[in-house]
Design a binder for these strands. Structure first.
Lengths: 205, 205, 205, 205
DNA sequence: TGTTAACCGAGACGGTACGTCACGTCTTACA
DNA sequence: TGTAAGACGTGACGTACCGTCTCGGTTAACA
């Protein structure tokens, strides 16, 4: 009551405020474990608490369960966006798809994702978290497509959302599920972009 | 005749042979639990043993762990193949894609699959099991595409394997990951087939 | 005052302290099972946990294994000491020996003891537990013998420890091992006391 | 009814007779395991069968359970009787007691015995087995005592059975139970013999 | 000389209990 | 009230043996 700050912001909950140090330590611990190659579903709350130097209760006060913690953790690691040259729609799309499908641990989100799918099927909140993670990348791709429409590289009546799925789906299943052993994952992004563009591009053909 | 019989048949392992009744009871128990809506990763060996009327050791004698049991179980449930009218490539491909992406539990394999992905990333044997499950469906699609090439519905230099990925990927990620909330899963199969065909079709355009 | 309190009391371990209710419930459960006639080696941790309304982990947090639990349990049941009349060394010794050898379940410790012997041969800690159980009774007998020495009932140079063994040994093996079918266990304590006293007594002879 | 042989001996069961090689192999396997220091209660039928190169059923066809097998096994190993000089009752008794109480594994029977006690309390047959093992040694001691009575070394009205217990009991409990840490097990046999003789001896005093 | 019945090894069977682990909750003392 | 620590009840894990039950294949006395 000392200052005038009382009117500023939310009413300020009573008691000791939550430590931001704990927040960060927890998220960092998860990310560390992930980075060490620990399989996401093999990460235990107990291990996270121990590594973060935090009590288990402190974790459960912030997240409902392990999965919620994991989504939150992967949301806190933004994969750096690839440089888009902007010279051609084709090159930009390929640049966006490449990190999804190329290396062994391309995008850290992709590593955790499979472990969360089954949980997502039961937990509505988790979908929201996932959407928050993928939406920015999806938007990047949308921007490229819309730019292509404006410049005439793509046909005007292109269904953008469908095209996103056409581009991402093949690369993603091949990476996550090793769907087809006869397909080379390394060259897949480019080939997918070409195949889709060839079909949907306006003057290209 | 004596010498000829030497080569006939497997040498027959010593000891009491494994009970085929147990095999079936175990697989059936897993399938039952799955059918009841139990999430695959929530299935416990103890529950399977209890329902199958079987000792836990009998399960562990056959499978190394829970995941191995699950792959084997889903391999034992062949989703019935959809009727292919054969009238057009487009219709047949849509018929093949529809069960993948449409309903809540379309193909039972699809229901278990997400739970196994993370295990598959560690266990090489499990990939083989998965391939055995999807390969037949992939082959069906290949047959349709090759028929289309022969009839001229599709261009002669079509890359069949790539086309499989282009068709299946979008439907699969939308179903398994609810990848894009702006896409309607119900109509997706047809739209994907059309979009891909439009691009890769020969005289169609 | 600040500095003085530093040395006061145990440092108090962090975290939730162990529940004394659990301690008691577990020990009571063991004792109950024993009292019901369950053979000590047939007692399972699972049964103890179930009866005590306690998780197995709670037991394993306190005791390393089943045997350690059992010794601890029998240590918590002090057989009531017999009334010593004090009129004569002979009567008091017989009174002390009688509960060891007489009935079917004379001293509860005697019932569990045989089951633990083999474990004791491997586990040094267990000997300590056993000593704690028998030492008080041994001391009672020592007191009687030393009183006898002071009163002149026993010779002055009596080897007290050896005499303890001479008195207890025969009764114990007859009870625990039914060592000799020609010996009547009921009358044995008195006869042993008489035989030993006759030899070691001073003026008695 | 054909021959007169009907009255002679057991009727000879039909079918293949039991292999004596198996009998020996099984007993030997138990004895081997015991000799290697395996604790008797830690011996498993499976281990015995494996070591004997025998099927488990072959064991169960002969013995009802593990304990019955163990008693039978220890009955098949007769500890060699010590040389009795015959010069004095004292020396002979001490010679008989010494192997019971001295070394770490004095008499192999003594090693198994503790593990069987609890089982013996439930199983009447097992007592019989135990008696068969100890009776010969008891008889040796009886012989010495009776010889002492005849020669006048011991009093004529000596209770032989009681004296057996007085001699054996203290040594046995000290060895099996490490009953009293203040007693030296090495010198115990002689001291017990002396103490008992001093009391029960006739002219000795 | 077959037949026959119980034996043999091997090992699978349904069970029970083991001791470990992680879950998500609860309970301390302290800040 | 938040926090670190750690105990709590729960329940599955994968292992080890239990004592029983098939298997295909001996092994001897009887017929």
């Amino acid at each position: 009551m000392i200052g005038v700050t009382a009117a500023a912001g939310p009413p300020r909950a009573p008691g000791r405020p939550r430590s931001t140090r704990a927040d960060e330590a927890i998220i960092d611990a998860v990310l560390d474990l992930l980075a060490e190659g620990t399989n996401a579903e093999a990460i235990s709350i107990e291990a996270v608490a121990a590594r973060a130097g935090v009590g288990k209760a402190t974790i459960y006060r912030r997240w409902a369960n392990k999965e919620a913690l994991l989504v939150d953790a992967i949301m806190n690691l933004k994969g750096q966006s690839p440089d888009l040259t902007g010279t051609s729609v084709r090159d930009d799309l390929a640049a966006l798809l490449r990190p999804v499908g190329r290396s062994r641990r391309p995008h850290p989100a992709a590593a955790v994702l499979p472990c969360l799918i089954s949980e997502m099927h039961r937990n509505e909140q988790m979908w929201a978290g996932y959407q928050q993670v993928v939406e920015p990348r999806r938007q990047l791709m949308r921007d490229v497509l819309e730019r292509g429409i404006r410049t005439g590289e793509l046909r005007a009546d292109l269904d953008v959302e469908l095209t996103l799925a056409l581009l991402t789906g093949p690369v993603l299943i091949q990476h996550e599920l090793r769907w087809n052993p006869r397909l080379d994952p390394a060259s897949l992004p480019e080939r997918v972009v070409d195949a889709v563009l060839e079909g949907i591009g306006g003057p290209a053909r």
